[in-house]
């Protein structure tokens, strides 16, 4: 088994952290895992991304041409990864103006920023996206992510732990209510 994820969005959208969180949860559940950020010119303004590979065997390449799953948080990420994902494309429909027209993969629009706003913080959009993603593609359980958050959340954000849990649930519930296309 090998799973590959690319998370892509603006700096500040929590794209790097959500990838790391998935990686932590994978490690805590005894998987092999790699996390690699983009650290090139895109880090110096613009859209950044990270790639997470999860496997039950040693991982060769930590980067892949066509990740099984791509998660786009903004318009540039949508444009860059819509044609790249090979199984599942999740995008933040609050921030993305287009609609994924591909019929050969599962497309999952999630109004993550709007849902996060209802919870009181736009910064929770990354957790909403992760909750939605893992509901459709349960590589790891939501409870594994909750455990990883509990262990790895930075101490100065610990007061936000419950809100993060809620955001994961909101993402999960959203997917359960909306039929996939």
């Amino acid at each position: 088994m090998q799973e590959q994820f690319v998370f892509s969005g603006f700096g500040g959208q929590g794209v790097m952290f959500v990838g790391q969180l998935l990686a932590y949860a994978a490690m805590d559940n005894s998987f092999e895992v790699t996390w690699i950020p983009s650290y090139g010119p895109e880090m110096r303004g613009g859209t950044a991304h990270c790639t997470v590979v999860i496997s039950d065997r040693p991982i060769g390449s930590p980067i892949v041409q066509n990740p099984k799953v791509a998660i786009a948080f903004n318009n540039p990420s949508f444009d860059k990864y819509v044609s790249v994902a090979s199984e599942l494309f999740v995008y933040n429909s609050s921030m993305v103006d287009s609609t994924c027209q591909r019929s050969d993969i599962t497309a999952l629009p999630v109004p993550a920023t709007a849902l996060a706003d209802k919870l009181g913080s736009l910064k929770l959009a990354n957790m909403v996206m992760l909750g939605a993603l893992l509901t459709v593609h349960p590589v790891l359980s939501i409870s594994a992510i909750r455990d990883a958050l509990d262990i790895h959340i930075p101490s100065h954000h610990r007061n936000l732990l419950d809100l993060n849990y809620q955001a994961l649930d909101v993402g999960m519930q959203h997917v359960m209510q909306v039929p996939l296309f």
Binding site: Q20, A23, M27, E32, V33, T34, W35, I36, P37, Y39, P62, I63
Partner: peptide, 10 residues
């Protein structure tokens, strides 16, 4: 190389 430097792994 840059990839070894930047990558996170257990």
């Amino acid at each position: 190389d840059g990839q070894i430097g930047q990558m996170m792994e257990p």
